[in-house]
Each structure stands twice: as C-alpha cells, then as structure tokens.
Design a protein around this nucleic acid. Structure first.
Lengths: 349, 349
DNA sequence: AATTAGCACTCTACTCAAATGAGTGCTAAC
DNA sequence: GTTAGCACTCATTTGAGTAGAGTGCTAATT
C-alpha cells in the first residue's frame, strides 16, 4: 500500500486538528471541516489504511485517531523541508525577547537563566539552555597573588574572558620578587595553550625554571588544568517545568513526576545536549518525537533542540520540551530566529 | 473548657496516629490501640471537646479527626520542649551524610547542592539550602591585572576567601608601573573595609592619589562595591521537589503545580530565608505549620528551617518542606545534628 | 472502480440509585 | 463520670442504564 497524495492530505489534516484540539479526530470532523469534499465513509477507509501503515492510531475502538510518532515524524520532516525554502521567517515572534537580550547582563549565568525563563513564558513549554561550551579552552592570562600569608590566589582567564580561580595553601613564604617572577614565567610559558598543549615538555621546562619553587608550580598547574578543563556537567539552566501541567496528557502523577524529576536531575539532560550538538540537523535544529528522545524519561514528550554558536567552536544548546502535540512550527521558528539573534548580539561585542 | 491531661493525651495520640497513616483517626481506633483504657464513646466526647477547642477537625461529618494547624503547633512546641532537655540526640541519622561531607568539595556551590540532594534523599521531603551569607563583607585583597590591551581584570577577595571578579573595559593604556601603583593604592586604602566603611572620604582620597587615573579608580570602586555587596538573591539550592508526589494530600494538580512552581521561582523562597534568619527559635530551628509559613504557596505544607553559622555573622539556612504530617521529630533531629556538624567541619578548616 | 449511505456494533463517559461502611452524636443505663 | 446502644450522616463503591462518538462493513450509487 502506498501513501498517495490524498492519504497524505488526510494525515496532515488529522495532525493539524489534533495539534489544535488535543482530542482524537473522527472521520466526520474531517469530512465537514476540510476542503477534501469526501464523505466520512471514504475518509474512514483511508484512515484504516493510514492506521495499517502506522501513521495514526486509535486510543480505543470507538474513538477517533491520533497521530503516532511515525505520523508526527512525517509531518515535521515535511514542515522542515518547506521552511527551508521560505528564506526568512517572521521575526516578530521573538521581538520582545530581543528587547531584553539587548541589555546584556554581565553574568552569562544570569543571562541564560533569564533566557530560559523568557522562552518558557513565551512558549508555554518547558525550556533548557546550556552555557556555551568552549571546545578548546585556551589560557589567556594567569595571575598569582598572595592573599594572606600561606594562601596563594590563582586566577586564570581563558578564552571568552571567562575567569576561574582557586586558592592554594602554600607552605613556604614567597617574596614579592619570587611571585612576580613566577607570574611572568607562567604567563610566558602557558598563555595561548590548551589543555592538550600543556604537555610534559612544557611542564618540565616550567619546573626547571622554577627551581626551588617547583612544588608550587605543580599546584599552580593543577589549578590551571582544572580551570581550562571543559566541565561537562551541570551548566544547564531550566525553566517552565510547571508548564507541563498545561497539557493533560502529561499531567498525571506518574508522568509529571518523571518529567519534573528529569529537570531536577540535570545530569539526565546531558545526553540530550550531547546528541543535539553532534547530529547537525536543519540549521542546527533537531526534533525528537516521543521515544526518539535520548532521555528515556521524556518519551511521552517531544523535544526540539537548537545549537547556537557564538564563535568558531563555542557552542551551546537551547531545548524546548513539550507535549508531542506541541506547535512544532512555531517552536522551530522561534528557535531559528533566536539562535541567529544570539549569534549577532554576541558577535557585535 | 480546659485542656486537661487526658485531652492532651488523646490529642497526641490522634496526631501520632495521623502522622503515621495519613488517614483521619476515629474514636474506635484510639480506644483499641492506645493504653488509655477508655471506650470509644468517652473518647468521642473528648474529641468533640478538642474540636470545639480548635485542636482537631473533621474533613467531613462521618470521618475521623485530623489535627488542625493549632493542634500541630501544640504538638511541635511540646516536642521541642522535651527535646531541649535530652541533651544529645541520636547522631546516627546523619551518619552517611557526614561521610560525604567530610570529603569537602572545593566549590561551596557544589557542596551545598549536594547537601540539598542528600538531605532530600534521606528524608523524602523537599529541601532547600542557602549559601552562607556574610552579613558584613570586608575587602581582604584586591588585584588589578591587564588581561589584554583595553581589558582590566579586577579580582576582589573577601572574607571567607570568596573570590569575585569583573573585567573592565578601559580607554587609556596603563603602564606596568601605573598598574602596580594602582594595585598598592587600592589595597592599602580599601583592605579590611566593608561596604559601609568605604565612604566618600576614602573615595575622594583614593581618587586624589590616582591623579590622572581617577576615571579608572571609579570603575574599580564600582566593581569592588558589586563584589562585596551582599546579594540577596538566588543563592538558593533546592532538591527533591518531586518528593511531594509521595504525599497524596499534596499531589493533586493544583497543589503540585504551586509547590513546584515555588521551587522553580526561587525568589519566592527568600522570604522564608529572611524570616528564618531573623526569628531565632530553639537552637536556630523554626517550624512553620501550614498557613504560618511566610511563603503563601506553601500553605498546605509545613516547613522546618535551621540556621547554621560558620563563624560569627556568617549564616546560612537549611529548609525542609513536607506535608503537614511530616515527621517533625526526625526532621528537627536531623537538622540539629546537621547544623552542628556543618559548624564543626568548617571550623576545623 | 471509487464513493457513499446506512446500519449494527463497540467502547467510553456519564448519571443515578443502592449498598457499604466508617464514624459520629446523643440518650439512657450503669 | 463512663459506657453501651442506636439512629443518623456522609464519602465511597458498585452496578445498571444511557447517551454519544466513532468505527467497520455491506450494499447501493455514481
């Protein structure tokens, strides 16, 4: 059996209707409210076929049909293909979001948290934003200072002016000159290097230069290593988890608990981020429908992720989590314009 | 009417039973399963009195009784009074928690997040932990460095070795000597001062010393001010929000949504923290029952908060949020031992 | 051969009444 | 003051009956 034009039309009509109402769609509804001009009986036959093909299913015998994951998939793919052509979308959607993004907050952390929140409020879905990840952190600047006797402050500035710091306990007392000297040494030896480039050779050379202070250099290197190591964890901001209560199909105890649990245990979301960064889809946008999701506890939802790239190799992910019947079109649009704008705003800097 | 000994006994029995089962308690149950040796009829009479006094109430005519907020209050106060005497509690409860606290993580942030998580897992309630708040932050050390041309890194170390940093854009190019000079100036003028002590006099003197670089000093002072300003916001870590689904009386859509919303919008929790820090109760432990809570959306819960104090004036709050029928005794015990241990661990440092 | 009308059938959701049972309040006896 | 006993209340459960939405199939129509 083939999926001819008419079947496709009917399928799309079913999906569109279901997206709107959230109720199973019956043959009579379609017959009346579409321009197909077919009787309900004919549509019933077609629907039986569509069900056999796996695009739709019945919650129970005497109910209408709802789209299956496979059905949604077809719909989304088709939609994405169309969008592709339509060069520039309607930018209005994110207009007010833009406004607040403009007045960039200092702390990236706060900005992203805010972004997640705004996005959740605008879409009525749950959202997730990861901090941009510098795939290759490079040391830009190192500063060692004595805070108080026995305490050494190590500040490391890395690409993108991210500042990390550690306080070390040191046994020996360092004179001002030694400190100055160590500072210079570290900067000349390490600046511009990434974690992989700081190899044994560099380390040995540095320790040699340090002479009697080699122990300290060791500690400092540890601190530097920690600072430039890309931490895979936790830098995920979420918002709007309670939005899932807007959708009855996600609101029962069991499902709500699972979902909200996933938002609480952010480590579960890392899979999602990972996968989303790897599989480059249409303009970095990826749609996971139901059980396609990499996060098991979200198998009753759909997830749309977008990758934004501040500069070469500096990527983050934005995700929107909603019911399978989410408004894919709108969500994809929002994410597209949003990522473009994020890029632009940061590139201006 | 008075609350005589027997009434009190019955009230306590009702509460204890209800804490266990979560079901309204009937007269027959009490008659059978307590050592009061009274018939159900007598107990019924007493219960009628207790209801009139406002300590218990009936969900509906033909149900047993459940404690009212006033009833719980009596119970908790009484319990706290008893605990007072019992000098040292059973410390075992937090034994495994201690274990992980011992291997202190560097980042306070992580530690507190972990603490919240562990606590939630151990108690099966929702938890909340705030970062210790230094009521009077003092500047301990300032370091200005040139990261790259036009960018000045300001690092401020404050009490408790908390490190804050800002990157400033500067117009003029600074020589190494100037930078060194500025560094010394800032440190000698500002070290040891709190936000209130950095007054116009200090500022004027500093600017005068700076001469042509007064503009920069202005920016630096702003950065310092930001660093030592106690930020009232957001430093709240939560965990175990999904635990509320364990308690049917909190699990319906409406309530669950409200509660989880409160955990998401952490700004709502600041009231709680505020109040808890101010009203010093029994060993810094405070119990809010039902509508006593400062956070409106939690009026169907009870909240137990504890204040911990790392050193003079450095305080944080731990909160446990559960159903009104939470195991107050256990929770209070855990919080007591936990705060003591937190103090000890940090004091060792 | 495709479409449609018609009808029997299925299944959910709702309503209603009756039965159940836990628990009370009150009265009269102890 | 305490208790036994009984009538009463009310939430919950159960089952029957009904309405309604929607289907699948067959036979008639185009």
């Amino acid at each position: 059996m083939e999926l001819d034009g008419r079947k496709l039309k009917i399928l799309k009509a079913i999906i569109r209707n279901y997206l709107e109402t959230g109720e199973p769609v019956g043959s009579r509804t379609l017959s009346k409210y579409t321009d197909l001009n077919l009787s309900s009986a004919t549509i019933r036959n077609e629907m039986a076929d569509l069900e056999e093909l796996g695009y739709i299913l019945q919650p129970h015998t005497s109910a209408g049909r709802i789209p299956s994951d496979k059905g949604y998939r077809l719909y989304v793919d088709d939609m994405m293909r169309e969008k592709e052509q339509e060069v520039s979308g309607k930018e209005k959607e994110v207009e007010n979001m833009k406004e607040f993004l403009i007045e960039r907050v200092d702390k990236v952390e706060l900005l992203l948290q805010q972004l997640a929140k705004q996005l959740a409020e605008n879409t009525n879905y749950a959202t997730m934003v990861t901090a941009p990840k510098y795939s290759t952190n490079k040391v830009k600047f190192i500063q060692l200072s004595r805070v108080e006797p026995g305490k050494l402050l190590v500040v490391v500035v890395i690409d993108g002016n991210i500042v990390r710091n550690t306080i070390l306990d040191v046994e020996e007392e360092l004179s001002d000159e030694t400190l100055l000297h160590l500072n210079m040494m570290c900067n000349t030896s390490l600046n511009g290097l990434s974690i992989n480039e700081i190899n044994l050779g560099v380390i040995a050379k540095l320790k040699e230069q340090a002479g009697i202070h080699r122990a300290i250099v060791g500690s400092v290197l540890d601190a530097v290593a920690e600072a430039i190591t890309v931490d895979n964890d936790l830098e995920i901001y979420t918002s709007g988890a309670t939005n899932i209560f807007r959708y009855p199909e996600l609101s029962d105890q069991e499902k709500a608990r699972n979902l909200i649990g996933a938002f609480e245990h952010k480590e579960l979301l890392t899979n999602l981020v990972q996968e989303s960064l790897e599989g480059e889809g249409n303009q970095g946008i990826q749609v996971y429908i139901g059980s396609e999701t990499p996060v098991q506890t979200m198998k009753d939802c759909s997830v749309v992720t977008a990758t934004y790239e501040l500069e070469e190799g500096v990527k983050g992910t934005i995700g929107i989590i909603g019911p399978k019947r989410m408004d894919y079109e709108r969500v994809v649009n929002i994410l597209k314009t949003l990522t473009t704008q994020l890029d632009n705003i940061y590139k201006k800097t």
